[in-house]
Amino acid sequence: MTGLVAAASAVVLVLGACGGDDGDETPAPGGGTTAAASEIKVGLAYDIGGRGDKSFNDSAAEGLDKASDEFGVEATELEAAEGETDAQKEERLRQLADAGNNPIIAVGFAYATALAAVAPEYPDVSFAIIDDATLVDEPNVASLTFAEEQGSFLVGAIAAQASKTNNIGFVGGVETPLIHKFQAGYEAGAKAVKPDIQIQVTYLTQPPDFTGFNDPAKGQTAAAGMYDSGADVVYHAAGGSGGGVFTAAKAGGKLAIGVDADQYLGAAPDVQPVILTSMLKEVDVAVYDMIKSSVDGKPLTGAKVYDLEAGGVGFSTSNSIVAPFTATAEDYEKKIISGEIVVPTEVGG
């Protein structure tokens, strides 16, 4: 057993109902044939935190579970370890490929360097990467990205409406160009509602330290500092660290905004009341689409962007306290889709 396997979380086999006898071939849409779905093996390489983070990785897992149930594919899941190198990520991807998984989905931009090295070694394997568009020229890689800035604009507009102190906050897990998109959209949405609103910003770690996506204690400390400095709504784009933001909001009697999944639904009952809304990033849809394309015999390649128009981002309404603010957000949504509003992707843009 390699050190990588020992460091990874348990490999999980997900088996759904088989769609036909082994060895059968079924027509692929548009012509051609593909192996029975029950013969397809899917490899999923999680980012730090893995299944159970109640955010980014769990959204990917939801898409995998749906595809497993619907198509009967077999899946192998491996989790990243904190502080690992690109070489270790490469080993994880090769392990999945050598085990016969096809497609293989890398969950998170942190896999970009590793996948750039591994994809050419396995030209007959279809790969996908979430949140990275640097590999669009690789013939066997699908780059599945999101318009995070658009969804963040909407929750920024909600935060500004909900704020009674004219002071809100943003907690980023790791300061990268991707998380800057969340911040840029959030700030633009808030200022569209209240041009003079104060926005506090904190990043938990700097690259190459990616533990900021899985450190609830740091998230709690950062958010508590913002609340103490006058903020009454804090939005996090920090993965598993967001749990700490919710804890701080509850302790301070303030509000928080989740990310990626509808975090109200997965939160403990005592924390749910402080989760005003969540910026929905439908990673589950991207994962499902990649698997379905392989089942159909036409694996995705190139770039695919999940934006507001495609239903790839949005905001949740599970907590009824958000109701007074949704009409304004929905109006902005229409203007973004029509092109009347172009949301910046860079801070200060």
Rank of each mutant, 00 (worst) to 15 (best):
K181N: 09
I105Q: 03
V14M: 14
A112Q: 09
D53R: 08
E138L: 15
E138G: 10
D53Y: 09
S9K: 14
D47Q: 12
E62F: 12
I321T: 14
V141I: 14
G339Q: 13
E121S: 12
V295N: 00
G230H: 06
E121D: 13
A61M: 13
S241V: 05
S229G: 13
L255H: 08
E39D: 09
H180R: 02
A35R: 05
Q263K: 04
Y227F: 13
Q95T: 13
T205A: 07
G219N: 11
D65I: 15
D124L: 03
L96P: 10
V42D: 09
D289E: 15
D296E: 07
A303V: 08
V73W: 02
P207I: 04
P139M: 13
S316W: 12
S126Y: 01
A188F: 07
T176W: 00
D69Y: 14
T2E: 12
E138R: 15
D260A: 05
K334M: 04
K298D: 00
Y227R: 00
F315Q: 08
A37R: 00
V73S: 03
D331N: 11
I199H: 04
G173T: 01
L78C: 12
G258T: 07
N167Q: 13
G49E: 04
S294T: 13
A37P: 02
F127K: 15
I341L: 11
G266D: 09
G63A: 08
L154T: 09
A36H: 02
E282T: 12
D284H: 11
L4H: 10
T134M: 12
K218L: 14
D47I: 13
V201I: 10
V347I: 12
A99W: 06
D65E: 15
A35P: 03
A81K: 04
N102C: 00
N140G: 04
K250V: 04
F325A: 02
P103R: 05
A310T: 14
D262G: 08
V14H: 15
S294L: 08
G219S: 13
G219L: 09
V193Y: 11
P299S: 09
A237C: 08
D21T: 12
K292W: 00
A35T: 04
M279N: 07
E309L: 05
V73A: 04
I48E: 03
F246R: 01
D24I: 01
K41D: 02
Q198I: 11
I104M: 06
G239F: 02
V295K: 00
F246P: 00
A110N: 07
T2C: 08
L300Y: 00
P207V: 03
Q161F: 10
Y235L: 09
Y46A: 14
A248R: 12
P344R: 02
S163D: 11
I291W: 01
D196Q: 08
D22N: 09
N101I: 02
Q161A: 13
D98M: 08
T165Y: 09
H236F: 07
A117K: 14
A231G: 11
D284T: 05
L276H: 04
R94I: 07
L4R: 11
L308R: 01
N214A: 10
S316F: 13
T205N: 06
T76P: 11
A116K: 13
V11D: 14
F146N: 01
A162F: 10
